[in-house]
Amino acid sequence: MSEQWQQPQDQPQWGGGGQAPQQTSGKATAALVLGIVSILCVPLIAGIIGVIIGGQAKKEIDSSGGRLGGRGMAQAGVILSWIGIAWGVLVIILAVAGAFSS
């Protein structure tokens, strides 16, 4: 009795074609991390790099034809990076003003 089991032909076949799952852009993740770091630690350095990488990530995602996701992460990274840059500039202005007022 060496019968092989076969699925009846009237049953739908699963796991065939279809679209691959959407992947998140690595640059989008990096932009978000840099945006957070720019607020917490090194505002100017991480902020500038975060804005650049976030812009690249958005272009990469838009040109991928739906293959890549994470545009919201990239946008959040850019926004947080700009906030970090503004925070860094404010700290520098206050430090310079404090140095001259003494």
Rank of each mutant, 00 (worst) to 15 (best):
L34C: 10
G35K: 08
I36Y: 12
I36P: 00
I36F: 12
V37L: 15
V37W: 07
V37I: 15
S38Q: 04
S38E: 03
S38V: 06
I39T: 10
I39W: 05
I39H: 02
L40H: 03
L40I: 13
L40T: 08
C41G: 02
C41S: 13
C41H: 05
C41I: 15
V42K: 00
P43N: 04
L44P: 02
L44S: 01
L44A: 03
I45P: 00
I45Y: 02
I45M: 04
I45A: 14
A46N: 03
G47V: 07
G47P: 04
I48V: 15
I48C: 03
I49N: 05
I49D: 02
I49A: 15
I49F: 09
G50T: 04
G50N: 06
G50C: 04
V51Y: 01
V51Q: 04
I52D: 01
I52F: 12
I53V: 15
I53Y: 05
I53M: 05
G54R: 08
G55K: 07
G55V: 05
G55T: 09
Q56C: 04
A57K: 11
A57Q: 11
K58A: 09
E60H: 09
I61W: 12
I61V: 08
I61D: 12
D62P: 00
D62N: 15
D62H: 09
D62R: 10
S63I: 02
S63R: 14
S64V: 14
S64Y: 14
G65Y: 11
G65R: 11
G65E: 09
G66E: 07
G66W: 11
G66L: 08
G66A: 07
G66F: 12
R67L: 15
R67C: 00
R67P: 00
L68Q: 09
G69W: 04
G69V: 01
G69N: 10
G69R: 02
G69Q: 08
G69M: 04
